[in-house]
Design a protein around this nucleic acid. Sequence first.
DNA 1: TTTGGTGCAAAATTTTTGCAGGCTA
DNA 2: TAGCCTGCAAAAATTTTGCACCAAA
Lengths: 152, 152
Amino acid sequence: MSVNREQFEKILREKGLKITTQRVLVLTALSACPDKHLTAEEIYELVKVDYPEIGLATVYRTIQLLLELHLIDRINLDDGYVRYEIGDLGEEETRHHHHHHLICLGCGSILSFQDDLLEELEGKIAETTGFSVTDHEVKLYGYCEECRRKID
Amino acid sequence: MSVNREQFEKILREKGLKITTQRVLVLTALSACPDKHLTAEEIYELVKVDYPEIGLATVYRTIQLLLELHLIDRINLDDGYVRYEIGDLGEEETRHHHHHHLICLGCGSILSFQDDLLEELEGKIAETTGFSVTDHEVKLYGYCEECRRKID
DNA sequence: TTTGGTGCAAAATTTTTGCAGGCTA
DNA sequence: TAGCCTGCAAAAATTTTGCACCAAA
């Protein structure tokens, strides 16, 4: 589950940060498009619809803040854009597992999926390298059903 | 195994591309640092040692070319830099599996590892979504042995 | 010789920063 | 009211492009 507005306001208050229209709108835009993987520019355009006076610099500053609060995730889908999406809300210990991304090399579409198959791998790594894994990000490349049909 | 110079020259020749000192030196720099994850700027600085007249634009154009030839991989370790590393040479069908990266959140060090544990997952995905996976990239975040000791 | 490749500089992008003024608490 | 936050514009940083010249084939 992602943050709702009240939770967000509570988080800001607890950190001594101010609740501003801009911050709420940026988070709202990301919440409204959970699987859209928006760029900073896209977020800016979305927020401008309801609040035309917002500046792009504020969007960047807010993104930075939301990242630090772990409310959103930065993702890079190798299309040359840095993107952001609303994160799962959770305790520190269970926050680890964002969903992953299936990237179609044919049409560029993105499918998200959830899977904890890597837990086993994480254990193995801890054993062999001494590295304790707390989080992971997986990108899978391939061809979606539709593109596969086109190719054949 | 990564490309050697002769293989590289052969590939260029077959594609009707010219073998230039700059192209050879950029590839050589990347080959010499298989686990260094160099940025464009770093590659530029490295090549300049032996060939001071090279331009940064040429480095970018060469990186682009090497990516298209699948001789190098672009990686993003979330430190704000786009990085490149020499890729494994292989047939189209077996090229899938680059190694993956363990990123230490403490000291920023990167460990590379190879694992095919995702094969199982790929099968599962094909079944449930119709998406055929041809490649994957995994990043694992955590704390390396040294940083773990410091924390405790 | 021909064509593609290069270096340089300028342009285009993307992101960050400084500062004066505005708004939240 | 005090200080954080914002908008604007300028700056910084990164990558791309135009063009004349050079070099590989």
